[in-house]
């Protein structure tokens, strides 16, 4: 069953067409990565899903909801079920780990409770559980600006998990991490998708990482899909097509065949 259906999605920035007629379906629980060179439209595609960027035309259906038909309030409600993880973590640096994690609950709370940060005991214990599972139990009361990059990204993941999401969008979650932290983050996200049946839609720059973790890879070039299949079908020739003249750099890295 598809949790996310995108049909003929097109996005213009003024005259620049960043996405043209993109159509794809993502099954519930699937781990899908989007690859493509810089400027291909990966971030635009991801952000159109939760309407952080307004699409110009096309259909986006998440969990049976026509996202583009939603007004302000209903859009907020729909977004509570979609987590988002960022390259630069996007935490509040001066607040503690647990405070940042609980921010993931704000979408469910009344304005008054949310404004003053009043959380229920269930919410607190859920946040503590999630942090423990991500190996951050010790860091709980540290301020986020005292954490390493890998730890910050785990806080980001925890914040999206307490949302109780059905889908997590990840915009280059490991692009500013060292290889070992990157592996930890990818392993956590992989486990989340496998054990919790949460769908993952992720932009990546590293083709080898995409091949290792994904159920499916989508290649986009100049705003259009040029590949959409299992990782094992991603041949050298197709990588070259996705990355165009950048392919030489990519293919020196570990790549299929």
């Amino acid at each position: 069953m598809a949790i996310l259906t995108i049909k003929s999605l097109t996005k213009y920035y003024k005259d620049l067409r960043a996405l043209s007629e993109v159509s794809l379906k993502v099954k519930a629980g699937e781990f899908v990565t989007v690859i493509g060179r810089s400027g291909a439209g990966k971030s635009t595609l991801l952000r159109c899903v939760n309407r952080m960027i307004e699409p110009s035309s096309g259909l986006i259906e998440f969990d049976g909801i026509d996202m583009r038909s939603l007004g302000r309030r209903d859009l907020r409600k729909a977004r509570t079920r979609i987590g988002m993880i960022f390259q630069h973590f996007n935490l509040v640096p001066r607040q503690t780990v647990i405070e940042n994690v609980l921010h993931g609950r704000l979408g469910y709370k009344s304005t008054l409770q949310g404004s003053f940060g009043i959380y229920s005991d269930e919410e607190k214990s859920h946040a503590v559980d999630v942090l423990a599972r991500l190996g951050l139990a010790e860091q709980m009361h540290k301020r986020c600006d005292q954490l390493s990059g890998g730890q910050k990204q785990r806080v980001g993941i925890a914040r999206s998990l307490v949302q109780d999401p059905r889908l997590i969008l990840c915009d280059e979650p490991i692009a500013s991490l060292d290889p070992s932290s990157a592996k930890t983050i990818m392993d956590h996200l992989h486990r989340i998708s496998r054990d919790m049946k949460i769908t993952i839609l992720m932009n990546l720059h590293q083709v080898d990482v995409a091949i290792k973790y994904s159920d499916r890879i989508i290649g986009i070039r100049e705003g259009g899909i040029v590949f959409d299949d299992e990782p094992r079908r991603l041949k050298k020739k197709i990588v070259a097509e996705i990355y165009g003249s950048d392919a030489d750099d990519i293919l020196f890295e570990e790549s299929p065949e």
Partner: peptide, 11 residues
């Protein structure tokens, strides 16, 4: 990040 999670403006 908070917009994306559906948090209201005041919160």
């Amino acid at each position: 990040a908070l917009w994306a999670s559906g948090a209201p403006w005041a919160a």
